[in-house]
Design a protein around this nucleic acid. Structure first.
Length: 657
RNA sequence: GCUGCUGUAGCUCAGUGGUAGAGCACUCCCUUGGUAAGGGAGAGGUCCAGGGUUCGAGUCCCUGCAGCAGCACCA
């Protein structure tokens, strides 16, 4: 006698166990047509699922965002059927729904290519049009294994074998074709609709492990209707348009070449961007009571052995062997380019006796690090082998961890706001499998960080097993202008390294104590963050960041002396300005500098030269504003002030008044 | 690192085994103009590198390097 409670609070009684299909039909023909699946007590199941106990039921229709997951999962099955129909002998493995779409991994000797897509998509559309019902069956484990093995589907058989004992082996049929699947599915293949598109092929390791064979994966995107699909494809174009590698070339910011793979040649404009950001960070850190240091690039192997990096990351370190070829191995110097700054910072901390009165000691370095990243990981300036971190280590007592965490989060939030990011989320990454330090130490470190978050009022989601090898960490994830997430900031609690490197301070009790180390960064690496900034702004930077802030364009040769005077005035006001007095029409100049993403163009002709004015045109706008030269210089100089200096100016004024 | 794709002028890209191409950018000349391309001329090549097949290779084959996408990795 199941009593079913609906979202509006109404309750329906049924005399016997009943399927979702029947419940929907009892409510009305409209819902019966629209319902794709349902949630029973919060669990998403097929409409064919039989409800035999009192429960709360919510029907999922196409309108519901949840339907996207169903559509994407179902279309993955449709893809698999199409592929097996077209390419006999291809083994199926898994095919989940993912963000924006789905994929299916196939085992086949011959990899797929995008040229196969039209045929596969055509077959998929046939399968959707046929609208075969999805039907669920539960098979005995042995039978299922035997069935798939007999078909040569050894990957499926392996999946079933590894399913936990007691887990039902559910099989979904869609017409002639069937697949092992946990479900749930919609009513039939027709519910998928036509708003899907195959996107790309790629290799992917079986079960995500690089020791396993590589499968061939087909990615697709799928949506509820053509409008959503169109919007998604547009979003991809938008991301390509913002690609920092493309903008870096177009704006002449940097380049990379074969002789220095993974390192960046910063051109003048790119370097200006870099230094503006670095100067800003230096001021912010100083305002937050950090001291800045500089430590060596090349450090003897013994320090990395002591820190544990040699053991954990040797393969990814650049090593320099120095000494004659004939010299005995143990006489040679073995130096490593530092992959991190922390062991060096500990050396400074250890240099001389430290008092508890010096804590918390916040030691910052724009630390240039080198890591031998795998070739496939390199990506523009975002993932490189030579980079500079906005790194700092806070040496403190256990009691100070919470306050330091709160302080850091406030500082980080300010920086992100200043740089144009309105929101970020925090993830808590706890102990990884491969780690240094005993479990008791990890218990303490994790507890301290949890408590610090509580006191700082920082909410987070858990990211299990993703901590650093020496400690748990908070990860700060930005969302950019087109909705992509970037992990940038980090705060790591470390009880291990001070111990391994024997750092200590003298406490109030005159005894030696171990400091706790907080590793923290806000930007992460300048290289990567600048890549993110370029994409965030699509190269159209706010004035304070723009590598060229103003171009003064003359209309006629007669106005050239005045144009140069305007340039000079702006330069003296601290702006980065260029004159464009070339023999070109003003249309061409405006077009060129607009394409170069210069935020402000000042146009000067005879009229402006006579009246000592400038015609200001903003990037992206067609309007012009006629301003007195003095007024324009003052306004632009003020606007070009970095946000932290603007605040200082305001506070200063507030103090005086 | 793995799988697949790609590599031709500064950039974007054509190129059928038979003399290396276009547009933009660049240089020069004409033009002095009012807010997203004025006109003309010129210059510019290790066709990623090495090997092979061929009378002949940018083109076909092999190896390497680099880039791109995804996977794996990211202290």
């Amino acid at each position: 006698m199941p009593a079913i409670t609906l979202p509006d609070g109404s309750v329906r009684q049924f005399a016997a166990p009943v399927t979702g299909t029947a419940v929907a039909a009892s409510i009305g023909p409209g819902l019966a047509r629209a319902a794709l699946a349902m949630e029973v007590d919060g669990r998403l199941v097929d409409l064919g699922h039989e409800i035999d106990a009192d429960s709360r039921v919510v029907f999922v229709t196409r309108r519901d965002p949840q339907s996207l997951g169903l559509i994407r999962h179902d279309v993955a099955h449709v893809l698999a059927e199409a592929v097996q129909g077209l390419y006999p002998g291809t083994q199926v493995t898994i095919g989940p729904a993912i963000e924006n779409g789905f994929y299916y991994d196939f085992a086949r000797n011959e990899p797929f290519t995008p040229e196969d897509f039209p045929a596969i998509e055509a077959r998929m559309r046939e399968i959707v049009a046929r609208n075969a019902s999805f039907t669920r069956e539960v098979w005995p484990r042995d039978e299922a294994i035997a069935f798939f093995e007999a078909r040569g589907e050894r990957f499926k058989a392996e999946l079933i074998r590894d399913l936990p004992e007691g887990e039902p082996i559910s099989i979904y049929r869609q017409g002639e074709w069937l697949d092992l699947c946990r479900g749930p599915h919609m009513r039939g293949t027709g519910d998928v609709g036509n708003a899907f598109k195959l996107m790309k092929v790629a290799g992917a390791y079986w079960r995500g492990d690089h020791r396993n064979p590589m499968l061939t994966r087909i990615y697709g995107t799928a949506w509820r209707d053509a409008g959503e699909l169109e919007a998604h494809l547009h979003q991809i174009e938008e991301a390509e348009r913002r690609d920092h590698r493309r903008i870096g070339r177009e704006m002449d910011l940097f380049h990379i070449q074969e002789e220095a793979v993974g390192s960046i040649f910063w051109h003048p404009k790119g370097w200006r961007l870099y230094t503006v950001l670095q100067d800003y960070m230096r001021r912010i850190q100083s305002a937050h009571d950090y001291v800045e240091v500089r430590t060596p690039q090349l450090v003897d192997r013994s320090l990395w052995e002591a820190s544990g990096h040699w053991e954990n990351y040797r393969e990814h370190m650049f090593i320099a062997e120095v000494g004659d070829a004939g010299e005995a191995e143990d006489r040679k110097l073995s130096l490593a380019l530092k992959p991190m700054n922390c062991p060096c910072h500990v050396q400074i901390f250890k240099h001389g006796l430290r008092s508890y009165r010096e804590l918390p000691l916040r030691m910052a370095e724009f630390g240039a690090c080198h890591r031998y990243e795998p070739s496939g990981a390199l990506h523009g300036i975002m993932r490189v082998r030579a980079f500079t971190q906005d790194d700092a280590h806070i040496f403190c007592t256990e009691d100070q961890v919470a306050a330091e965490t709160a302080r850091f989060v406030a500082m980080l939030a300010q920086v992100y706001r200043d740089l144009g990011f309105d929101s970020f989320v925090v993830k808590f990454a706890d102990r990884p499998d491969n780690r240094a330090g005993d479990d008791a130490t990890w218990d303490r470190a994790e507890a301290a960080l949890v408590e610090a978050c509580r006191l700082a009022g920082v909410g987070y989601e858990l990211n299990p097993g993703e901590g650093a090898f020496y400690g748990p960490k908070l990860e700060f994830v930005l969302r950019d202008a087109i909705g992509r997430d970037w992990q940038c900031g980090t705060l790591q609690v470390d009880y291990v390294l001070p111990d391994r490197l024997d750092a200590s301070f003298i406490g109030e009790d005159s005894a030696r104590h171990r400091p706790v180390m907080l590793h923290r960064a806000i930007l992460g690496s300048f290289e990567r963050f600048l890549g993110i900034l370029i994409e965030q702004y699509a190269g159209r930077f706010p004035l304070w960041l723009a590598p060229v802030q103003v171009v003064v364009a003359s209309i006629v040769t007669d106005a050239e002396p005045y144009a140069l005077e305007v340039v000079d005035r702006l330069k003296r006001a601290g702006l980065v300005v260029q004159a464009d007095t070339r023999n070109e029409k003003i249309n061409a100049k405006v077009r060129e500098h607009s394409l170069a993403r210069v935020p402000v163009i000042l146009v000067v002709g005879r009229k402006e030269a006579e009246a000592r004015t400038v015609a200001m045109r903003r990037l992206g706008g067609a309007a012009q504003e006629l301003l007195d030269l003095d007024e324009a210089v003052r306004a632009l100089a003020d606007e070009a002030l970095p946000p932290d200096l603007k605040r200082v100016g305001r506070d200063h004024v507030a103090e005086l008044t």
